[in-house]
Design a protein around this nucleic acid. Structure first.
Lengths: 255, 255
DNA sequence: CGGGCCAAGTTGGCCAGCCAACTTTCGGCG
DNA sequence: CGCCGAAAGTTGGCTGGCCAACTTGGCCCG
């Protein structure tokens, strides 16, 4: 697997972006160095300036370079940024870090969706949903409890997976269920009795919670999940810039 | 104040984006409705298709619409997304939500930077830094402890602000210190004695921690901050999509 | 020596056009 | 009636060009 989000497709600007990203992260332009001008890059890669600008927009969004009118782009950092798929899939993420992910299905039930679930998954009132509870591990040690609600179309596939399936998103992709957009909310929550039992912590001890709603390319919700991480195992990292930002801080409005 | 990130500048595509955003959030195209074709929008606004595409890229980055080859864009959600400035400045954020922000400076010291701080703020070893400790409140109740390290250029200005200054970023902006790029890391931490005293919680109780490193347009670090929030007061919200993502999940590598 | 002005370099923004890839629709055909 | 293929509609990608806004550095002048 290429593990390079840019190189995957045949688009020219992604190839250029991948090449520049590699050059930057290996320090070819220095820690706070300046990139060549857009025109020079266009000539080097044999593409138009517009294509170079598309490539640079990707790097800017990742926080790798600045971009300011009148002066050349400056390298902001050489940190490696995970790709989208690594964020969506615990399995994919863990593997990309060299850790061995594991997952044990604790329960899977089919039941009528409540009002909130209908709203989130955009289902008719009274529709059924599939609810899974999974304990996720890294190299054998429990780190996260995952409670996921699937709409019927997706749940039917999940229900047929073996209980010890490490990844759920990969088999889903093979069935044509794609994950392309996600909204995440991150906060702190106290462990309930079930969390405590599964994660081996005390009831009431703090957990990092990620709520996630995922949609496919058509905008149809395919997943609604609540993940609860043991403190000290993971942190979430975001870059944003004036140019474009997708992160916001919310006042709590309940669960 | 316009409170609209798009409308601020004179760029055409931002005007178009602002108009479309407003139309979407007020439900003009429905909850999962389809947007007009790019060409139709171009004609409506009297701009080229390229400009419309720039506008739509902004909305896509905010998670408002999908975008897929072959079919019209679909409205993903009508949620209001905060702007970048609301994320960077506690004061600005609080005000945008109708809450009254407050801040009390607990201490401000000047001292030599340690190795980690030199690295983060890109300073010469042995440089001095300004360190502030502030208690931030919403409508009078404490919600966050903010520990910020400033490089000399910025700290000198901060040091001259009155102790009861609500906002630090606004006076800094007036002095020509701009905040344009930030990297955030979010995790959970236990309250230390000082946290507990200021926030009125028990020592060891969980806090939501945001570590933030901010740079100006030239890529020069201007701030390194650790904010610790009382649980239940704020949550962080992120949108990402396959097209472009700036969020990642990290394994913890210490502080 | 310092300050201000000017020119070169660079990115932001916008336009017009072209083709490819993909989705949806619709009509014909078995 | 259902399936399949063609056609229309739509977005993705790329080119080439133009001008404006801005930064930088050097030159000139006081």
């Amino acid at each position: 697997m290429p593990a390079d989000p840019d190189r995957a497709t045949g688009a020219l600007y992604r190839t250029v972006a991948a090449d520049l990203r590699e050059a930057i992260t290996t320090g070819r332009y220095g820690e706070a160095g300046r990139l060549p001008a857009e025109g020079a890059l266009a000539e080097r890669y044999g593409v138009s300036r517009g294509t170079v600008r598309q490539a640079l927009a990707l790097l800017r969004a990742d926080g790798l370079v600045t971009s300011r009118r009148g002066t050349r782009r400056v390298v902001l950092g050489t940190a490696r940024v995970q790709s989208f798929s690594e964020l969506l899939s615990f399995t994919h993420w863990a593997r990309s870090m060299g850790e061995e992910p594991g997952g044990r299905l604790e329960s899977l039930v089919r039941r009528p969706a409540d009002a909130a679930e209908c709203e989130l998954l955009r289902l008719e009132p009274g529709s059924e949903v599939y609810v899974t509870l999974r304990l996720r591990t890294l190299s054998g040690t429990p780190v996260m409890v995952e409670r996921t609600v699937y709409p019927p179309r997706v749940g039917e596939i999940v229900a047929q997976l073996p209980a010890d399936a490490v990844s759920h998103t990969e088999p889903l992709r093979e069935h044509g269920i794609l994950f392309t957009d996600a909204d995440h909310t991150i906060d702190v929550v106290a462990a309930n009795t079930e969390d405590a039992r599964l994660l081996g912590c005390r009831r009431g001890s703090p957990l990092l919670r990620e709520k996630r709603r995922t949609t496919d390319p058509t905008g149809t919700p395919v997943e609604w999940s609540q993940d609860r991480y043991l403190p000290g195992t993971v942190a979430f990292s975001i870059h944003n810039s004036l140019a474009s930002s997708a992160l916001s801080r919310h006042a709590r409005d309940g669960d």
